[in-house]
Design a protein around this nucleic acid. Structure first.
Lengths: 360, 360
DNA sequence: TTGTAAGCGTTATCAG
DNA sequence: CTGATAACGCTTACAA
């Protein structure tokens, strides 16, 4: 393994000079510089980044701590992080699939000395202490934090606003009995979405009935189950709001089994706008969260923070969640299949995910 | 920033002893061990991984070099890598979005001294020299390599076999005039799939007509264009084989516009089995490549290689590509929509991507 | 069982 | 402009 010493020896200079050449110092004569470069080339020398880090305390690397890499949403977040980081010549060190706060901390420990800053998505049950522990060692940007505290930069997702907009939209369409399939208890996103649901009723002078708030766990099956649970009731809801798209898919299945047509008999709205949402039958009205942008913004804010670490004003950004109206809510009158087709073709090859590259 | 020295000083021992405690050496008295741990706790000391790397030459990190992180396929690969790595207590250092061989090399350079090995997906136009340069510095596993050479471990994708199976399936269904929408020229995957297409004809004693081989670029629009290009012809094909699912989607759009029903009038088969394939109308028959498994296997093989570096026999694995028969090829007689529904509900919450966690 | 000290491959601070 | 040399934080013989 060739080191800077080898280059220095062969070039007949000191290692300090070689180092200067690599770091673009001007205090090197042209002839020396050329000689060093040429030797470097011949010896095919690659500097050791770890050693460099030890002295400079800089890594050109951003740590990414995620609770789980499963699912489209996280993939998109990672993609956003990666692209933004690459743009700024940073690499990313990923440690994911952390299901417990302890695992999160141990992942963070391994990053000590190997990253300039951290982008972190806290777990559902994230212990505040553990997170604080991490935050006092690294420059951190929290993605979708439980509680935005001013001591850390963060990018929150407008769960409340999105849910509110979705339910208000249903109310505007004339719905009064709107069921909600909730997310898992203790999950911050789920709670905010539920709050948005309830508030939409309040604001419009309506009452939200507890019996219409059905348990769910973000999985498809719980959407299905929710429909079945309500099927027996006397006054069935005219609309369903599911706390995520997967459960909305289950709701569609359940309604199909019951012989109910969507949106003619029942309206359905989801949350997330996952890839398949527009391909469902009928295309799902949902609330879109731009996961890619979430990651990208995290990087940009972290980099800004790294550049002015003393700046105490850590920003708390909020990523908007926007209602995407398709067919499942009944707002459109067009034929469902026609719409699906035309939507599929109106932007050929222009979807955000379309890299135009081979798969694989 | 507290270091091992601080711990040693406070605990009243030498740094060597502290180091021994952390590294689980047995040659430390119980009392000392306890004292060191307690001081570590109090000082809240986290070891510096970079420094440790410098002496041990081990990083517990795997480098991942990808041409591009866009698209579902790569996300899945990353996910497979991440999960497998995590399973073995490795972190991953990602450098992606490399469009040129030079960028790939510069990404690799930055990994010098920071990874134990590399998982690399070579670019379409990957210069052999650059790749060799990288391979002689790191333990490398090549994902989906252009040409599997025995000097490197690799996981190839059975593009040829998959395409062959797809086209043969169409032939068995009675199709004789089968158009192919090709991938971009120069792309290894595309070329192999084309070869599979042609060979299926040869093997069955049929002739493949060049006029039925249409240009494509892996984007949706080129599938659409291909259909339009053939629409004018006298003897229209009874089936389309697209080199990837995105183009197959475009083909479906095009046929829809022409008023042709799939699969009654024309059969369509794609390649990749991207997430939406089963939700298309009709559900797309395609060739499935398990991207997750590709990444996972890469990690496992790399780790095996790291454990016996001298073992000259670098394995060349091949990842199978299997035909997934849905409705678009016409092999099934069931009602299309019924099938979609039942498929959607028969495995509620059990899809590979379903983490059961919040999105976000 | 513990301490001393020589690295690991760089960068950075001095003199020259 | 260039060269010694002391860090950087840790591991690991080698001694004690």
């Amino acid at each position: 393994m060739t080191t800077i010493r080898d280059v220095a020896r062969v070039a007949g200079v000191s290692i300090a000079t070689v180092s200067r050449v690599f770091n673009g110092s001007t205090r090197v004569s042209d002839s020396t510089r050329e000689r060093v470069w040429s030797v470097t080339e011949n010896l095919d020398y690659w500097p050791n980044s770890a050693a460099r880090t030890l002295t400079t305390n800089r890594t050109q690397t951003l740590g990414v701590l995620l609770p789980d890499l499963c699912g489209e949403f996280f993939s998109e977040v990672i993609r956003g992080i990666d692209l933004a980081a690459r743009e700024e010549s940073y690499q990313i060190l990923v440690s994911s699939s952390h299901s417990t706060p302890e695992a999160l901390v141990s992942g963070a420990k391994l990053m000590r000395g190997r990253v300039d800053g951290l982008i972190m998505m806290a777990t559902d049950v994230g212990s505040e202490d553990d997170i604080r522990q991490i935050c006092q060692r690294f420059q951190v940007i929290l993605l979708n934090p439980r509680h935005a505290s001013s001591s850390n930069g963060s990018i929150a997702v407008a769960n409340f606003d999105g849910a509110f907009a979705a339910v208000e939209h249903l109310i505007r369409l004339g719905h009064r009995t709107i069921a909600m399939v909730k997310g898992p208890p203790g999950n911050g996103d789920a709670e905010e979405r539920l709050r948005g649901y309830r508030t939409a009723f309040d604001v419009n002078g309506l009452r939200h009935e507890p019996r219409l708030e059905l348990p769910g766990n973000f999985r498809e099956s719980s959407g299905y189950d929710a429909v079945m649970a309500l099927a027996a009731l006397d006054s069935r809801p005219s609309a369903f709001f599911a706390a995520n798209d997967k459960m909305a898919t289950g709701v569609l299945s359940g309604l199909g089994v019951l012989g109910l047509h969507v949106p003619r008999d029942v309206a359905v709205v989801g949350f997330d706008d996952i890839g398949i949402a527009r391909y469902l039958d009928p295309p799902l009205t949902t609330v879109r969260v731009d996961a890619f942008d979430l990651g990208k913004r995290g990087v940009l804010q972290l980099l800004a923070q790294l550049r002015s670490p003393d700046d105490a004003s850590r920003r708390q950004e909020v990523l908007s969640a926007t209602l995407v109206v398709r067919q499942s809510c009944g707002a459109h009158t067009r034929n469902t299949l026609d719409m699906q087709r035309s939507e599929g073709h109106s932007h050929p090859g222009r979807s955000g995910n379309d890299s135009g590259r081979s798969n694989p």
